[in-house]
């Protein structure tokens, strides 16, 4: 095995392109090192992207925020601008693992690990986040929901890696929230996760909503019916009830060591309702 810590995007792309199958990108490493230890990954080359200029930066861009691929959860949580605009995305990343893991784990890494239970991904999908991908043919932007394709698999091509995540501009009276269910209070993988992103008009009516579920399918699910249930409503009980039903309906989980199908479908609705209330209160400036 070889360890490379390139200083530029170009040099990282060139190393990645040279050994496509056996080459792994190292951002926070909180998944990769665990897989290596378990013998599930045996990379020929590890490309540590943390020495590349800009990877640790959070910058304002077109009213939104661009978050470098090496920005860890603790750094994101300390950034006032992102926390104000996208509290749901921040809390989703911050829920991953321990304080120690927060010192390493990244949005880009969580996305590219392509676990169905990734916490930050439903929040990013609800946020309409866009991943910037560098590769042999230059850079391209991809909607976050199109990056993971199956458990452990992404749509990234040969020599490509995610260099940043873009969270778009926010109008007034907009906010988001992410909740997950775990058996303990910390340290577990999501049994169900739900991100809700809302925009309200001046009288409190929901003008736009995006709702995404994690851990209830092979990849994150953007629930159109849930968004429809909220849009145009005052986010009253009836709308929240429709939201919960739509999420329970859309969830297509499996039985495994972390939960049952019936439990996950039910809790998907419960979390969606709770997350929507938090996002609503935030958007109203009440939380």
């Amino acid at each position: 095995m070889r360890y490379e810590a390139p200083q530029t995007v170009e040099s990282a792309v060139s190393i990645l392109s040279a050994t496509p199958a056996g080459c792994h990108v190292l951002a926070g490493g909180t998944d990769l090192l665990v897989r290596m230890r378990a013998g599930m990954s045996e990379p020929e080359v590890i490309v540590d992207i943390k020495r590349i200029a800009g990877m640790h930066e959070i910058s304002a861009e077109e009213g939104g925020w661009r978050i470098g691929a090496a920005v860890c959860g603790a750094e994101l949580g300390e950034h006032e601008g992102v926390c104000a605009a996208w509290p749901g995305v921040v809390e989703a990343l911050e829920l991953i693992g321990s304080t120690q893991v927060q010192g390493r784990a990244t949005l880009a890494g969580n996305l590219c690990n392509a676990s169905p239970a990734a916490d930050s991904v439903p929040a990013m999908v609800a946020a309409g986040a866009v991943a910037r991908v560098a590769g042999p043919d230059g850079t391209r932007d991809v909607a976050v929901q199109d990056v993971p394709t199956d458990p452990g698999k992404t749509s990234l091509g040969r020599g490509e890696f995610v260099t940043s995540i873009f969270l778009p501009a926010r109008p007034e009276r907009a906010s988001d929230a992410y909740l997950r269910f775990i058996p303990r209070t910390e340290m577990d993988i999501a049994v169900v996760g739900c991100g809700v992103n809302l925009e309200l008009d001046a009288d409190g009516t929901c003008t736009q909503a995006r709702v995404a579920l994690g851990a209830v399918g092979p990849k994150v699910i953007l629930v159109e019916d849930a968004a429809a249930a909220l849009a145009g409503s005052a986010l009253d009980d009836a709308a929240l009830e429709r939201l919960a039903a739509a999420c329970s309906q859309a969830a297509s989980p499996i039985d495994d060591k972390r939960g049952t199908v019936a439990f996950r479908k039910h809790v998907a609705g419960v979390l969606a309702r709770r997350a929507a209330i938090i996002a609503r209160d935030r958007a109203r400036g009440e939380a």
Binding site: P183, R184, T185, M187, D188, I189, K257, R258
Partner: peptide, 24 residues
């Protein structure tokens, strides 16, 4: 301890063998 149909232990780690943490 969670065993699969194959008799293999499904949760041999502190991630899924869930001992209480301080915040619990």
């Amino acid at each position: 301890y969670i065993y699969g149909e194959d008799g293999v232990l499904q949760n041999p780690g502190f991630l899924d063998y869930r001992v209480p943490v301080a915040s619990d």
